Deep mutational scan, measured.
Amino acid sequence: PDFTLHWNGITIHFKGIDEEQFRHLRELLDRGVSLEELEELAKELIK
């Protein structure tokens, strides 16, 4: 499924991740993950 997340004025689209992965990403963003960390995470998910 696809998810869209609005965070700090940025709209991020996640394609092909499951709800569990999306929930994990939201928790990280709510905790204050940096954009660099988010990019690293995205690379991991894409593999």
Rank of each mutant, 00 (worst) to 15 (best):
E40F: 05
N8W: 06
E19S: 12
H13C: 12
N8C: 04
H24M: 14
P1H: 13
I10Y: 07
R23W: 14
L41E: 04
I17M: 08
G32M: 07
Q21D: 12
I10K: 12
K47H: 15
F14C: 04
K15H: 13
Q21T: 13
W7V: 11
E19A: 13
L25P: 00
L28V: 07
D30N: 13
L5R: 00
T11L: 12
E37L: 07
Q21F: 13
H6T: 15
A42Y: 15
K15R: 07
I12A: 04
V33K: 05
L29Y: 11
L28R: 03
P1S: 13
R23C: 02
I10Q: 13
L29I: 08
V33Y: 12
F3H: 06
E36A: 11
I17D: 02
W7I: 11
E39D: 06
K43Q: 14
H6F: 07
E39F: 11
K43C: 05
E37D: 08
E39A: 09
D2Q: 13
F22T: 03
E27P: 01
E44Q: 04
H24I: 15
H13L: 08
G9C: 02
L29M: 09
E37A: 09
K47L: 15
E44M: 03
S34P: 08
R23H: 14
I12Q: 01
G16Q: 07
R31M: 12
I12C: 07
G32C: 04
H6I: 11
I17R: 01
E19P: 08
E39V: 13
D2F: 12
L41Q: 04
H24F: 12
E44W: 02
E27Y: 08
L5M: 06
P1Y: 14
L45D: 02
E40A: 10
D2P: 11
H24N: 10
L35E: 02
K15P: 13
P1V: 15
E20C: 06
E39C: 01
G9I: 01
E36F: 07
D30P: 01
L45R: 00
A42H: 09
E19H: 11
Q21K: 07
E36M: 08
H24G: 06
L41D: 01
D2H: 12
L25R: 00
I12W: 04
D2E: 13
L38E: 00
I17L: 12
L28H: 07
P1G: 13
E44K: 01
D18F: 05
L45Y: 14
T11A: 08
K47M: 15
V33N: 03
F22C: 05
I46G: 10
L5K: 00
T4N: 06
T11E: 09
R31I: 09
D18P: 05
K47F: 15
F14A: 00
E27Q: 09
P1M: 15
H13F: 07
E20V: 12
A42M: 14
E39P: 02
F14K: 00
E40W: 04
F22Q: 06
E40V: 05
D2C: 01
G9Y: 03
W7G: 04
H13T: 14
D18W: 04
L5W: 05
L5F: 06
L38S: 00
R23P: 03
F3Q: 03
P1E: 11
D2T: 14
T11Y: 07
E19L: 11
L38A: 03
H6Q: 11
G32N: 06
D18L: 08
E40M: 06
H6D: 09
L28Q: 08
D2V: 15
H13R: 06
G9K: 02
G9E: 05
V33G: 15
I12M: 08
W7H: 14
L38T: 01
R23L: 14
E36H: 10
D30G: 12
H13S: 12
H24L: 14
H24C: 06
L28N: 03
D2G: 14
L25E: 00
F14S: 00
R26E: 10
L29G: 01
H13N: 11
L29A: 13
P1A: 04
E39I: 15
K15D: 14
L45N: 02
